[in-house]
Design a protein around this nucleic acid. Structure first.
Lengths: 146, 146
DNA sequence: GTAAAAAAGGATATTTTTGTCCCTTATTAT
DNA sequence: ATAATAAGGGACAAAAATATCCTTTTTTAC
Protein backbone atom coordinates (compact mmCIF):
# COMPACT_ATOMS: atom_id res chain seq x y z
CA UNK A 1 0.00 0.00 0.00
CA UNK A 2 2.73 2.42 0.98
CA UNK A 3 6.37 2.49 -0.10
CA UNK A 4 8.99 1.30 2.36
CA UNK A 5 10.07 4.88 2.71
CA UNK A 6 6.63 5.87 3.87
CA UNK A 7 6.32 2.84 6.13
CA UNK A 8 9.53 3.88 7.86
CA UNK A 9 8.34 7.46 8.02
CA UNK A 10 5.12 6.44 9.72
CA UNK A 11 6.83 4.13 12.16
CA UNK A 12 9.56 6.64 12.98
CA UNK A 13 7.13 9.47 13.48
CA UNK A 14 4.90 7.43 15.74
CA UNK A 15 7.87 6.24 17.75
CA UNK A 16 9.11 9.78 18.17
CA UNK A 17 5.63 10.97 19.07
CA UNK A 18 5.31 8.25 21.67
CA UNK A 19 8.74 8.52 23.23
CA UNK A 20 10.14 12.00 22.91
CA UNK A 21 9.61 15.54 24.06
CA UNK A 22 11.68 18.70 23.83
CA UNK A 23 13.33 17.49 27.04
CA UNK A 24 13.88 13.93 25.86
CA UNK A 25 15.41 13.73 22.42
CA UNK A 26 16.08 10.56 20.50
CA UNK A 27 19.11 9.69 18.38
CA UNK A 28 18.93 8.16 14.92
CA UNK A 29 20.42 5.01 16.36
CA UNK A 30 17.74 4.63 18.98
CA UNK A 31 14.96 5.30 16.51
CA UNK A 32 16.21 2.93 13.84
CA UNK A 33 16.69 0.19 16.41
CA UNK A 34 13.26 0.75 17.87
CA UNK A 35 11.40 0.55 14.58
CA UNK A 36 13.59 -2.06 12.92
CA UNK A 37 14.68 0.01 9.98
CA UNK A 38 18.02 0.54 8.20
CA UNK A 39 19.89 3.19 10.13
CA UNK A 40 21.28 5.39 7.33
CA UNK A 41 18.16 5.20 5.25
CA UNK A 42 16.12 6.18 8.26
CA UNK A 43 18.45 9.13 8.77
CA UNK A 44 17.52 10.44 5.34
CA UNK A 45 13.86 10.04 6.07
CA UNK A 46 14.18 11.84 9.39
CA UNK A 47 15.93 14.61 7.53
CA UNK A 48 12.88 15.03 5.34
CA UNK A 49 10.45 14.73 8.21
CA UNK A 50 12.24 17.41 10.19
CA UNK A 51 13.06 19.69 7.26
CA UNK A 52 10.47 22.28 8.20
CA UNK A 53 10.17 21.73 11.93
CA UNK A 54 6.41 21.47 11.57
CA UNK A 55 6.26 17.77 12.24
CA UNK A 56 9.48 16.57 13.79
CA UNK A 57 12.13 18.81 15.32
CA UNK A 58 15.83 18.13 15.59
CA UNK A 59 18.90 19.58 17.16
CA UNK A 60 22.57 18.84 16.59
CA UNK A 61 25.34 18.25 19.03
CA UNK A 62 25.66 16.32 22.27
CA UNK A 63 22.30 15.78 23.90
CA UNK A 64 20.70 16.54 20.57
CA UNK A 65 18.39 14.34 18.53
CA UNK A 66 14.89 14.17 17.19
CA UNK A 67 11.77 15.02 19.12
CA UNK A 68 8.23 16.21 18.75
CA UNK A 69 6.41 19.05 20.43
CA UNK A 70 2.98 18.61 21.88
CA UNK A 71 1.59 20.93 19.27
CA UNK A 72 3.05 18.92 16.41
CA UNK A 73 1.53 15.76 17.82
CA UNK A 74 -1.93 17.22 17.65
CA UNK A 75 -1.81 17.27 13.87
CA UNK A 76 -3.59 14.61 11.81
CA UNK A 77 -1.56 11.62 10.67
CA UNK A 78 -2.11 12.77 7.12
CA UNK A 79 0.66 15.31 7.57
CA UNK A 80 3.15 12.46 7.61
CA UNK A 81 2.01 11.34 4.17
CA UNK A 82 2.06 14.89 2.92
CA UNK A 83 5.57 15.45 4.16
CA UNK A 84 6.66 12.34 2.26
CA UNK A 85 4.73 13.43 -0.85
CA UNK A 86 2.73 10.25 -0.70
CA UNK A 87 -0.71 11.61 -0.09
CA UNK A 88 -1.19 11.10 -3.82
CA UNK A 89 -2.32 7.61 -2.94
CA UNK A 90 -5.55 9.08 -1.71
CA UNK A 91 -6.32 10.77 -5.02
CA UNK A 92 -4.85 8.71 -7.77
CA UNK A 93 -6.72 6.18 -9.88
CA UNK A 94 -6.32 2.54 -8.85
CA UNK A 95 -5.88 1.53 -12.47
CA UNK A 96 -3.25 4.21 -13.01
CA UNK A 97 -5.29 6.41 -15.33
CA UNK A 98 -4.41 10.07 -15.08
CA UNK A 99 -7.68 11.39 -16.34
CA UNK A 100 -9.92 9.17 -14.26
CA UNK A 101 -12.60 11.26 -12.59
CA UNK A 102 -16.25 11.26 -11.62
CA UNK A 103 -17.10 12.43 -15.13
CA UNK A 104 -14.79 10.00 -16.92
CA UNK A 105 -14.40 7.12 -14.50
CA UNK A 106 -12.42 3.93 -14.81
CA UNK A 107 -14.38 0.73 -14.19
CA UNK A 108 -13.36 0.67 -10.53
CA UNK A 109 -13.67 4.37 -9.86
CA UNK A 110 -16.97 4.34 -8.05
CA UNK A 111 -16.08 1.49 -5.73
CA UNK A 112 -12.68 2.84 -4.85
CA UNK A 113 -13.95 6.32 -4.34
CA UNK A 114 -15.61 5.13 -1.16
CA UNK A 115 -12.56 3.24 0.03
CA UNK A 116 -10.21 6.12 -0.65
CA UNK A 117 -12.55 8.44 1.18
CA UNK A 118 -12.40 6.13 4.18
CA UNK A 119 -8.62 6.15 4.13
CA UNK A 120 -8.65 9.90 3.79
CA UNK A 121 -10.98 10.25 6.74
CA UNK A 122 -8.85 7.93 8.80
CA UNK A 123 -5.70 9.94 8.23
CA UNK A 124 -7.51 13.23 8.68
CA UNK A 125 -9.46 12.42 11.79
CA UNK A 126 -6.73 10.53 13.60
CA UNK A 127 -4.06 12.60 15.28
CA UNK A 128 -0.46 11.53 15.56
CA UNK A 129 -0.76 11.78 19.33
CA UNK A 130 -3.67 9.39 19.52
CA UNK A 131 -1.81 6.78 17.47
CA UNK A 132 1.22 7.33 19.68
CA UNK A 133 -0.90 6.86 22.79
CA UNK A 134 -1.91 3.50 21.40
CA UNK A 135 1.70 2.35 21.09
CA UNK A 136 1.95 2.77 24.84
CA UNK A 137 -1.02 0.60 25.47
CA UNK A 138 -1.13 -2.43 23.26
CA UNK A 139 0.48 -1.82 19.91
CA UNK A 140 4.05 -1.97 18.70
CA UNK A 141 6.35 -0.71 15.95
CA UNK A 142 8.99 -3.38 15.68
CA UNK A 143 9.33 -6.63 13.77
CA UNK A 144 9.78 -5.92 10.08
CA UNK A 145 10.55 -8.47 7.40
CA UNK A 146 13.95 -7.37 6.13
CA UNK B 1 -1.76 1.38 -4.26
CA UNK B 2 -0.90 -1.21 -6.89
CA UNK B 3 2.31 -1.63 -8.84
CA UNK B 4 2.35 -0.58 -12.48
CA UNK B 5 2.51 -4.22 -13.39
CA UNK B 6 -0.74 -4.85 -11.58
CA UNK B 7 -2.36 -1.73 -12.97
CA UNK B 8 -1.57 -2.96 -16.48
CA UNK B 9 -2.79 -6.43 -15.57
CA UNK B 10 -6.11 -5.07 -14.35
CA UNK B 11 -6.58 -2.82 -17.35
CA UNK B 12 -5.58 -5.51 -19.83
CA UNK B 13 -7.81 -8.11 -18.26
CA UNK B 14 -10.80 -5.80 -18.19
CA UNK B 15 -10.20 -4.79 -21.79
CA UNK B 16 -9.99 -8.39 -22.87
CA UNK B 17 -13.07 -9.25 -20.85
CA UNK B 18 -14.98 -6.43 -22.44
CA UNK B 19 -13.89 -6.91 -26.03
CA UNK B 20 -13.01 -10.50 -26.72
CA UNK B 21 -14.53 -13.94 -26.98
CA UNK B 22 -13.26 -17.27 -28.25
CA UNK B 23 -14.44 -16.04 -31.66
CA UNK B 24 -12.89 -12.62 -31.40
CA UNK B 25 -9.30 -12.68 -30.26
CA UNK B 26 -7.14 -9.65 -29.57
CA UNK B 27 -3.49 -9.13 -30.43
CA UNK B 28 -0.93 -7.73 -28.02
CA UNK B 29 -0.74 -4.67 -30.20
CA UNK B 30 -4.42 -3.94 -29.99
CA UNK B 31 -4.49 -4.49 -26.25
CA UNK B 32 -1.48 -2.33 -25.47
CA UNK B 33 -2.83 0.45 -27.65
CA UNK B 34 -6.25 0.24 -26.06
CA UNK B 35 -5.04 0.46 -22.49
CA UNK B 36 -2.13 2.82 -23.08
CA UNK B 37 0.62 0.55 -21.87
CA UNK B 38 4.11 -0.32 -23.13
CA UNK B 39 3.71 -3.06 -25.71
CA UNK B 40 6.52 -5.46 -24.79
CA UNK B 41 6.00 -5.10 -21.09
CA UNK B 42 2.33 -5.78 -21.56
CA UNK B 43 3.25 -8.90 -23.51
CA UNK B 44 5.06 -10.25 -20.47
CA UNK B 45 2.10 -9.51 -18.27
CA UNK B 46 -0.29 -11.21 -20.66
CA UNK B 47 2.01 -14.19 -20.60
CA UNK B 48 1.58 -14.44 -16.86
CA UNK B 49 -2.15 -13.82 -17.00
CA UNK B 50 -2.64 -16.56 -19.56
CA UNK B 51 -0.11 -18.99 -18.13
CA UNK B 52 -2.75 -21.32 -16.74
CA UNK B 53 -5.66 -20.62 -19.03
CA UNK B 54 -7.89 -20.07 -16.02
CA UNK B 55 -8.16 -16.35 -16.49
CA UNK B 56 -7.09 -15.36 -19.96
CA UNK B 57 -6.65 -17.73 -22.88
CA UNK B 58 -4.34 -17.35 -25.81
CA UNK B 59 -3.60 -18.98 -29.13
CA UNK B 60 -0.69 -18.56 -31.49
CA UNK B 61 -0.58 -18.10 -35.20
CA UNK B 62 -2.62 -16.06 -37.66
CA UNK B 63 -6.01 -15.20 -36.26
CA UNK B 64 -4.66 -15.96 -32.82
CA UNK B 65 -4.47 -13.68 -29.84
CA UNK B 66 -5.80 -13.28 -26.35
CA UNK B 67 -9.38 -13.79 -25.28
CA UNK B 68 -11.57 -14.69 -22.37
CA UNK B 69 -14.25 -17.29 -22.04
CA UNK B 70 -17.59 -16.53 -20.48
CA UNK B 71 -16.77 -18.83 -17.62
CA UNK B 72 -13.49 -17.07 -16.87
CA UNK B 73 -15.28 -13.74 -16.80
CA UNK B 74 -17.57 -14.89 -14.06
CA UNK B 75 -14.71 -15.11 -11.60
CA UNK B 76 -14.13 -12.40 -9.01
CA UNK B 77 -11.69 -9.63 -9.84
CA UNK B 78 -9.51 -10.85 -7.03
CA UNK B 79 -8.23 -13.61 -9.28
CA UNK B 80 -6.36 -10.97 -11.27
CA UNK B 81 -4.48 -9.89 -8.15
CA UNK B 82 -3.81 -13.48 -7.22
CA UNK B 83 -2.44 -14.29 -10.64
CA UNK B 84 -0.07 -11.36 -10.29
CA UNK B 85 0.84 -12.40 -6.72
CA UNK B 86 -0.31 -9.07 -5.46
CA UNK B 87 -3.18 -10.12 -3.26
CA UNK B 88 -0.71 -9.69 -0.41
CA UNK B 89 -1.82 -6.08 -0.30
CA UNK B 90 -5.01 -7.25 1.31
CA UNK B 91 -3.23 -8.97 4.17
CA UNK B 92 -0.05 -7.15 4.88
CA UNK B 93 0.46 -4.55 7.59
CA UNK B 94 0.27 -0.92 6.48
CA UNK B 95 3.31 -0.08 8.53
CA UNK B 96 5.25 -3.00 7.04
CA UNK B 97 5.44 -5.09 10.19
CA UNK B 98 5.54 -8.80 9.52
CA UNK B 99 4.17 -9.90 12.82
CA UNK B 100 1.33 -7.42 13.03
CA UNK B 101 -1.88 -9.21 13.97
CA UNK B 102 -5.03 -8.86 16.02
CA UNK B 103 -3.09 -10.08 19.04
CA UNK B 104 -0.02 -7.93 18.46
CA UNK B 105 -1.30 -5.01 16.43
CA UNK B 106 0.51 -2.00 15.03
CA UNK B 107 -0.99 1.37 15.95
CA UNK B 108 -3.01 1.47 12.75
CA UNK B 109 -4.03 -2.15 12.66
CA UNK B 110 -7.58 -1.78 13.90
CA UNK B 111 -8.45 1.06 11.56
CA UNK B 112 -6.95 -0.53 8.50
CA UNK B 113 -8.46 -3.87 9.24
CA UNK B 114 -11.81 -2.44 8.27
CA UNK B 115 -10.50 -0.78 5.15
CA UNK B 116 -8.66 -3.86 3.98
CA UNK B 117 -11.76 -5.92 4.56
CA UNK B 118 -13.69 -3.51 2.33
CA UNK B 119 -11.13 -3.85 -0.43
CA UNK B 120 -11.19 -7.59 -0.03
CA UNK B 121 -14.96 -7.64 -0.28
CA UNK B 122 -14.86 -5.43 -3.33
CA UNK B 123 -12.51 -7.72 -5.20
CA UNK B 124 -14.31 -10.82 -4.04
CA UNK B 125 -17.86 -9.74 -4.72
CA UNK B 126 -17.21 -8.01 -8.01
CA UNK B 127 -16.85 -10.21 -11.05
CA UNK B 128 -14.58 -9.44 -13.95
CA UNK B 129 -17.60 -9.52 -16.23
CA UNK B 130 -19.47 -6.88 -14.29
CA UNK B 131 -16.50 -4.53 -14.40
CA UNK B 132 -16.17 -5.24 -18.10
CA UNK B 133 -19.83 -4.47 -18.63
CA UNK B 134 -19.19 -1.11 -17.06
CA UNK B 135 -16.48 -0.27 -19.58
CA UNK B 136 -19.14 -0.56 -22.26
CA UNK B 137 -21.39 1.89 -20.56
CA UNK B 138 -19.55 4.81 -19.11
CA UNK B 139 -16.06 3.95 -18.05
CA UNK B 140 -12.77 3.74 -19.87
CA UNK B 141 -9.31 2.19 -19.70
CA UNK B 142 -7.13 4.63 -21.55
CA UNK B 143 -5.22 7.77 -20.66
CA UNK B 144 -2.25 6.93 -18.50
CA UNK B 145 0.46 9.31 -17.38
CA UNK B 146 3.57 7.92 -19.00
C1' DG C 1 39.83 26.36 21.78
C1' DT C 2 39.65 21.25 21.67
C1' DA C 3 37.31 17.16 21.62
C1' DA C 4 33.25 14.63 21.35
C1' DA C 5 28.45 14.00 20.00
C1' DA C 6 24.95 14.24 16.89
C1' DA C 7 22.44 15.60 12.76
C1' DA C 8 23.06 17.39 7.68
C1' DG C 9 24.37 16.45 3.31
C1' DG C 10 26.74 14.46 -0.75
C1' DA C 11 28.20 10.71 -3.36
C1' DT C 12 27.77 6.15 -4.47
C1' DA C 13 26.09 1.26 -4.40
C1' DT C 14 22.57 -2.30 -4.62
C1' DT C 15 18.19 -4.14 -5.63
C1' DT C 16 13.78 -4.08 -7.63
C1' DT C 17 10.71 -2.57 -10.95
C1' DT C 18 9.80 -1.33 -15.34
C1' DG C 19 10.71 -1.67 -20.05
C1' DT C 20 12.94 -3.26 -24.67
C1' DC C 21 14.79 -6.38 -28.17
C1' DC C 22 15.24 -10.32 -30.67
C1' DC C 23 14.99 -15.03 -31.57
C1' DT C 24 11.95 -19.30 -31.18
C1' DT C 25 7.80 -21.90 -31.51
C1' DA C 26 3.16 -22.77 -32.94
C1' DT C 27 -0.55 -22.11 -36.19
C1' DT C 28 -2.78 -20.93 -40.34
C1' DA C 29 -3.42 -20.22 -45.20
C1' DT C 30 -1.75 -20.79 -49.66
C1' DA D 1 6.37 -27.19 -48.04
C1' DT D 2 6.55 -22.20 -47.54
C1' DA D 3 5.43 -17.87 -45.95
C1' DA D 4 3.14 -15.07 -42.88
C1' DT D 5 1.21 -14.16 -38.33
C1' DA D 6 1.00 -14.17 -33.57
C1' DA D 7 2.33 -15.53 -28.93
C1' DG D 8 6.36 -17.53 -25.94
C1' DG D 9 10.63 -16.87 -23.84
C1' DG D 10 15.35 -15.37 -22.87
C1' DA D 11 18.64 -11.84 -22.41
C1' DC D 12 19.48 -7.36 -21.67
C1' DA D 13 18.74 -2.11 -20.51
C1' DA D 14 16.98 1.78 -18.06
C1' DA D 15 14.91 3.86 -14.28
C1' DA D 16 13.39 4.11 -9.69
C1' DA D 17 13.51 2.68 -4.97
C1' DT D 18 16.17 1.29 -1.31
C1' DA D 19 20.37 1.37 1.25
C1' DT D 20 25.27 2.56 2.69
C1' DC D 21 29.33 5.36 3.52
C1' DC D 22 31.89 9.27 4.36
C1' DT D 23 32.65 14.12 5.08
C1' DT D 24 30.84 18.54 6.95
C1' DT D 25 28.45 21.43 10.14
C1' DT D 26 26.56 22.52 14.56
C1' DT D 27 26.48 22.21 19.38
C1' DT D 28 28.00 21.01 23.95
C1' DA D 29 31.14 20.11 27.65
C1' DC D 30 35.47 20.45 29.35
Amino acid sequence: MFSKTTEYALRATLYIAANSSPERKLSINEIAAAIDSPRSFTAKILQRLSANERLISSSKGPGGGFYMTEKAGKQPAKIILETMDEDALLNKCVLGLSRCSDEKPCPMHKDFKVIKADIYTLFTKTSIASLAADTHKNSFLKGARR
